[in-house]
Amino acid sequence: MPERALLLTVLLWASATGAEGLGLGHAPDAATLAAADTAIGPSGEELPPGRGSVDEGAALFAAQCAACHGATGREGPDPVLVGGQGTLATAKPEQTIGSYWPYATTVFDYIRRAMPFTRPGSLSDDQVYALTAFLLARNGILPQDTVLDRDGLRAVRMPNQDGFFPDPRPGAP
């Protein structure tokens, strides 16, 4: 009897977890899928249409960002966004967009998903392009007369792109 009970259990388990799956969940509609897919990787293929200039970004920054990040992006009190190149190996490293961030697409992604701090999600894609352009220009990565769009952002190479390496642990302290 125990053998038969075991066999039955195995058969029931196999039929419950077999290749056809459990049949749980439902197919999302196309609109749900399209709206959800917002995270932007280094290739920038997920970037939306839109464009914004450094000048537009400067005005937006003064109005919406400077209270926390300082008038020029260097004063704080919240994270310093500008400058710091050449400081990473010193006793007082400044890990800014210009000195540290490996991918420009992350700047767009983070502003769009999480900024401004008290009202994330309130900026249009054009405004996010403009702010990204402004911050990259302030860091000397784009010219002042840039109008940034999807293709332009995908073409940006950040100074510290090669500054990261995989976790060497275990085997290193």
Partner: peptide, 10 residues
């Protein structure tokens, strides 16, 4: 690949 979000780069 990873998405390289702000919380895994900056």
């Amino acid at each position: 690949e990873p998405v390289y979000s702000r919380e895994e780069t900056s």
